[in-house]
Amino acid sequence: MDDIRYADRIVSADEVKIAARKAQVYYGTNHALRDVDVDILGKTVTAFIGPSGCGKSTFLRCLNRMNDTIPGCRVEGKITLDGQDIYDARVDPVQLRAKVGMVFQKPNPFPKSIYDNVAYGPRIHGLARSKAEIDEIVESALRRAALWNEAKDRLSSPGTGLSGGQQQRLCIARAIATSPEVLLMDEPCSALDPIATAQIEELIDELRAQFSVVIVTHSMQQAARVSQRTAFFHLGRLVEYGETGQIFTNPRDPRTESYISGRIG
């Protein structure tokens, strides 16, 4: 395990970006998530781990109100972004999602050119006044997503023509082009091979300089590699949340220990 590069665990910023208090999620009558209290820090990578169906993706989707699009889903409790309740009636989910971007499990580029995929967010949010500005945003987003060198000569070809790993980096570029404050990633590497995974992990570590990143992952190694904070979910509850090194080497809760040592999950 010595050759695996672990992320720097020292967190420079201590500001709380997103805070959840007693968050509950119901799908119809099914109580999917109970009493989740989490403080997600700014400029930090936070990993959510846990067995399938434990509620980690559900909680992730609460953070930018993507659950609003699921019929029958209800969220209770309090989730704040920079101190403001995101479930407040005055908050427009559209604006919230511009600030809290999301990358999905399966790469889902739009049926458009690579350029138009990245320019999509800046255009709908009116972030640029001229074509030149959009060009600039697209280039810098693709550079930050480590896709510029591969894509710069084929910006007008369809995004769906890229390989799986490139598509996922395109989706990340698309998400960071709107300059979000938080980037949510729902198992971003589960459909990728190890090389593409390594590229994305490196990318996540670089993105930490600008945003706070929340990543759901099934791979405990990945959580250990990329994150500074880790939350372990089990059966719809947050079991343990803390510094990644401590969770993996010295968990306080016996369930966490069982999971990371492979006895449950």
Binding site: L96, R97, G101, C171, A175
Partner: peptide, 8 residues
């Protein structure tokens, strides 16, 4: 989802 996730 991708589009809504970008705030469209």
């Amino acid at each position: 989802d991708g589009s809504y996730g970008l705030g469209a």
